[in-house]
Design a protein around this nucleic acid. Structure first.
Lengths: 121, 121
DNA sequence: TTCTTGTTCAACCAAGTGGTTGACAACGAG
DNA sequence: CTCGTTGTCAACCACTTGGTTGAACAAGAA
């Protein structure tokens, strides 16, 4: 299993069934059987999916007699959005600066940041 | 390979090496060899990782003589953030309403939305 | 206690993943 | 043209994953 938390969360949400379960849990808690009902897989398979979500910290399970109500833990989403936003902003900032450079540049000069980077220095 | 775009993106970012490559590409384009340098895996392995990122729409590759400069396509991030934000908001909204219910409730009533849901009706 | 329901555990299987090595294609430099 | 550089393709391997079936466990119902 993936060691770092971020990998676990991304990996957990890489499956359409698991994403769908998260979507349904956003509307309210549910039991394993309730979650299993819409899909034509066995309850055991759903139980495995839930374990993946739980290991990722996306859901928690408590006890209610024989039932194991599943609850969505939305805070873990922050882990992802923070990572994403960081690099998106960085990429957009770079893009904006590139625009500035192009605008201010005399048009004889051919811009090629890559070959400049690749120089063996 | 995963059919739907969302699964491909989440899956692509579930690997720490690939996330690291995205992080570096946010700072600027790079060639395959430049990307491979920090890790102690073969260039072929990195090439495979790039293919995964490309299939997810996270990067694009152009041609520059023998080199294949890799470029980050940050727009795909939106796909994820939109999905995440939707359910996060929904969960938070639900949580807020639950607070309201608890605040307005006479304290004899034991709240258990789950067992009410689970009733065989 | 025994029965039934809800859930998990264990073993297994086919397919996918991340890595390797080796061959080869594409291109610029001598 | 030949040579070194850059990158991909193909085949292979160990490990993981998502699914199955069958057994077991937990707890209320009879």
């Amino acid at each position: 299993m993936a060691a770092d938390p971020l990998s676990r969360v991304f990996s957990a949400l890489a499956d359409p069934i698991r994403r769908d379960m998260v979507a349904r849990l956003a509307a309210g808690d549910a039991t394993v059987n309730q979650l299993a009902e819409p899909y034509d897989v066995t309850v055991q398979a759903v139980s495995k999916h839930l374990r993946v979500l739980e290991d990722a910290g996306l859901v928690s399970r408590t006890r209610d007699a024989q039932r194991r109500p599943v609850h969505l833990e939305a805070e873990v989403f922050d882990l992802m959005t923070k990572w994403i936003e960081r690099y998106r902003r960085q990429a957009e900032e770079r893009f904006r600066r590139l625009d500035d450079v192009l605008r201010d540049m005399p048009d004889e000069v051919a811009p090629n940041p890559l070959s400049a980077q690749g120089e063996s220095r």
